[in-house]
Amino acid sequence: MISLQTVFIAFFGIATIGFGILVFRTSSMVRSALALLFSQTALGAMFLAMQAEFLGVLQIMMMATEMSIMAIFMVMFMMDPGGLGAMEMSHQKRLSILAGVVGALATAGIALFTPWGVVVNVAPPAAEQIRALGTELLGRSMLIFETAGVTILTAMIAATAVALPALQRKRNA
């Protein structure tokens, strides 16, 4: 008996993987970035299918802006962003394919042969999830969350400092 949930999880899973493969199959950089975006969006939809509503919507929201910004950086930094010149942009192809397949098979094997124990079939309702996640964030996991916040701040400062042009850095110092 295949439930609707299984169908949705499979559908969005296939969509995610398909778009993920498409990222490296196209030579147009904007297509590549947007394929990654749709891969992540399908992932968000898959979270929704797994009844993690808050995380799904959050994933869909965060990735849109992130991948659009990715697109502009791709166009800035690639030699052939339009992909009209059919430039070769990969190396050590056989090794990479081998590593990818071995990695995927190994993880899938682990997933298949690990005794996962009892599977729970009922998820808590969405409203309760959000409340409990908030309590978790500001309760037991507060320190971890604070650390994440401070890490974001550090990364922002570091990224800006690295990206500033050398001349301007000297003038401001």
Binding site: I9, G13, T16, I17, G20, I21, V23, F24, M46, S96, I97, A99, G100, V101, G103, A104, L105, T107, A108, A111
Partner: peptide, 12 residues
């Protein structure tokens, strides 16, 4: 399995 496939594609 989806996670495993994404991992493989990412490694590639």
């Amino acid at each position: 399995f989806t996670g495993a496939a994404l991992f493989g594609v990412g490694i590639y």
